[in-house]
Design a protein around this nucleic acid. Structure first.
Lengths: 138, 138
DNA sequence: TATGGACCTTCCCATCATGGGAAGGTCAAG
DNA sequence: CTTGACCTTCCCATGATGGGAAGGTCCATA
């Protein structure tokens, strides 16, 4: 590559993707929705990333792995960068997310309970009689 | 058998929606993807539904409320209509769905555990120090 | 120096289930 | 005949992600 691309720790999107465990596709997407600042470009148009960018990408990756939606991550990133943030705000966001997760968990557990119960009463043989279908049919 | 069984009380899509708890929008969608047969039409083009259609809609609604994806519901409907089905097939589908639900539940529970732990160690006051952000930042 | 392959670019489309809304037609009651 | 509630089709949006096409760039090697 040209010199400008080997100066310092700049790397291409593919290298940033490997370093952050965020796909190149997603990195471009995050930039397009303003979650990431617009990347530097080489003269030929290739995006360039430095260690700071990769740090941000890892932050996003970790937040995603905890289930935070991108809009919440946008706020978390702003708080992260804001030295005058209050930890109360971060905690508040996190606990609201936990509540949402628990709501979904409870919902799915109810489904599992019902289905396990129905399946338990289903012979599961070659005959057509089936309490599961009976339930669905009302 | 009798004519009376096929000359039922036809209703418009709005009435079928109310009777089945499936929105008119979704009824049209289900028809468009072939989950429902094409509805009868009045001369002016209005869709018409009878009790059999509503029964099918309620089946779909109930299956959705148990989290089954539409493609699985397509299969469930075929089994429901097939008098020579084996209950084993229905049970199999159901238990595979249960496994998928439990996989997601487990995943979300891990998120909750991590987040609760981090939040527990976060003061949640006006100061900026925050273990949650520290974790996200790696 | 030419070529090939690995990388990059943008753009469009698909997923999954659902809803919003526009533009326009139909129907029944007043 | 008007009005309002209902219906039609069509397009777009959600949220996070991926696939893939068409075409440009970079660099090592023959």
């Amino acid at each position: 590559m040209t010199q400008e691309m080997t100066i310092g720790r700049d790397m291409t999107i593919g290298q940033a993707a490997k370093s952050s465990a965020v796909s190149a596709k997603m990195i471009r997407h995050y930039e397009s929705i303003g979650l990431l600042p617009k990347a530097q470009r080489t003269q030929s148009g290739y995006r360039l990333y430095d260690e700071t960018d990769v740090h941000t990408l890892r932050f996003i990756q970790r937040a995603r792995s905890l289930g935070f939606p991108l809009e919440t991550i946008r706020t978390l990133l702003a708080l992260w960068r804001n030295r005058r943030r209050s930890s109360a705000q971060v905690k508040e966001l996190s606990l609201r997310h936990v509540e949402e997760l628990e709501r979904k968990i409870t919902e799915m557990q109810a489904m599992v309970r019902t289905l396990r119960h129905l399946a338990h009463n289903c012979h599961g043989d070659e005959r057509p009689d089936c309490p599961i279908l009976d339930d669905l049919a009302g």
